[in-house]
Write a protein that binds this DNA or RNA. Structure first.
Length: 424
RNA sequence: GGAGGGGUGGCCGAGCGGCUUAAGGCAACGGUUUGCUAAACCGUCGUAGGGGUAACUCUACCGGAGGUUCAAAUCCUCUCCCCUCCGCCA
């Protein structure tokens, strides 16, 4: 959510951002409603002032046991007027809010202009693509022959896109999760294990609602949404709360399963683990003062990158252009790992700075040490990382000619010391 | 699911139709004085919105939404959340 005053003062900028981000919020209508609303406020507040003054008079007269009926009669009509205007203001507030919900966040000045993902900028690349003296298999072949996953049976019990891990596949996934959580907590993140179902207020707070309502699983009977990422519960932890400045920054990491309907994406990346309805992810979330948020974004990205490096996977960092930037983000880096079996990069993390866009929606503020002013915090988050796609890159990168999969050294302690996954 | 209790400023907590401009305390900030992890005293101190170049001023806000009334933190209705007990269950 943007500040109305900001929109009032920078209408052209906001309009341009809507065009660049391909959002069709009606800024002119919004400005008109805002001006209209303020005009009514001026009128009604004059009336309310009259009422307050008269009210005091009435109470004085009553105390002195004098007649107040003429003032009361007059106030009756004034009050009726107030009621009419108040109703009008409420209508305007609602209308303005309806429009405001669709206004996207302003990109940071360092974000490039572009149409879509093809205009994203590669910031850095790391690692070497593995070389094979044989034709590398993809994760589905590997997973099937080693019995790591069972897509056919999970489709039977739930449907396509619901993965099932088995044996060493399940162990590998668990190893990845534990390795990530241990690494992040060692680096200063506090671990959170959040609820998986959240109320609509939470889904709205982090920006999933209203825009991506159809992308979430919804339990109608209880009005609860299955989380598409741990970002939702963790960011909402401090909804309607006020920090003191010395409490910031706060760094959280949270493992959760993530649920996404992926409506409308049928036929795209449908193979195996590439795009699924349920996957596991360790999420990183930060709350910080505005001055530090871009430093925190860089450090957040490094935390996520550290995992990929430790696993020895080739990857690249991409800075999203404004056309590819999500609704709520000011700046975003995508981390993409190389999957040699697929012969393509897979997005395993998005590290974003939302500045005060989320904080404004969910009302998270902090009191400045100097001056004691209340200000909105900045929120950031990034995957650190999603395991489903990491598994794809991992098994494809570390496959051998014998059809086994070598285990990266950092994961071995989490795999009971196993160095290699071999056929049974 | 059933029965009670409760939601008031950063925190605690009084108020239960008009002498409230939400008491009082804590915390915070500024100052005076005395000085060994500090105390005492004085002062300032909610948030949001509107108007004004400004000092300032007006309006709203007591979980949320309606209602009664000239007037609502206070009365009524609905609703959400928290706590305790009972039931059911992992």
């Amino acid at each position: 959510m943007l500040d109305m005053q900001f929109i009032r003062e920078n209408p052209d900028l906001v309009k341009q951002v809507c065009v660049n981000k391909k959002e069709d919020a009606d800024i002119d209508l919004l400005l008109k409603l805002d001006a209209e609303r303020r005009k009514i406020i001026r009128t009604v507040e004059k009336l309310k002032n009259r009422r307050n003054v008269a009210s005091k008079k009435i109470s004085e007269l009553k105390r002195e046991k004098r007649d107040a009926s003429s003032v009361i009669a007059e106030m009756k009509t004034v009050s009726e007027g107030i009621k009419v205007y108040d109703t009008k203001i409420k209508e305007f507030d609602k209308e303005i809010y309806e429009q405001m919900k669709w206004v996207p966040n302003i990109p940071h000045e360092s974000v490039g202009h572009g149409e879509d993902e093809k205009d994203n900028v590669v910031v850095s690349e790391w690692g070497e693509a593995p070389e094979f003296n044989f034709e590398p298999a993809d994760h589905i072949q590997l997973g099937t022959s080693l019995e790591l996953f069972d897509f056919a049976r999970s489709a039977k019990i739930s449907g396509a896109g619901f993965p099932l891990y088995k044996g060493y596949g399940a162990l590998l996934d668990r190893a990845l999760i534990n390795f990530m959580l241990d690494t992040h907590t060692k680096n200063g993140f506090v671990e959170i294990s959040p609820p998986y179902l959240v109320n609509s207020q939470s889904a709205f707070g982090t920006g999933q609602l209203p825009k991506s309502k159809d992308q979430m699983y919804y339990v109608e009977e209880d009005d609860l949404y299955a989380i598409p990422t741990a970002e939702v519960p963790v960011t909402n932890l401090y909804r309607d709360e006020i920090f003191s400045e010395d409490q910031l920054p706060i760094w959280y990491c949270a493992y959760s399963s993530c649920f996404r309907r992926e409506a409308g994406s049928y036929g795209k990346d449908t193979k195996g683990f590439l795009r699924v309805h349920q996957f596991n992810k360790v999420e990183l979330v930060k709350f910080t003062v505005p001055e530090k948020s871009y430093d925190e974004l860089e450090s957040l990205r490094e935390s996520a990158e550290g995992i990929i490096r430790a696993l020895g996977l080739k990857y690249k960092v991409v800075s999203l252009c404004d056309g590819d930037l999500s609704f709520a983000a000011s700046k975003c880096y995508d981390l993409e790992v190389w999957a040699p079996g697929e012969q393509k990069y897979l997005e395993v993390s998005s590290c974003s700075n939302f500045e005060d866009f989320q904080a404004r929606r969910i009302n998270i503020r902090y009191r400045q040490s100097l001056g004691g002013k209340l200000q909105y915090v900045h929120t950031l988050n990034g995957s650190g990382l999603a395991t489903a796609r990491m598994l794809v890159a991992l098994v494809e990168t570390y496959q051998t000619q014998e059809g086994t999969i070598r285990i990266p050294e950092v994961l071995q302690p989490y795999m009971h010391g196993m160095k290699e996954i071999c056929p049974e």
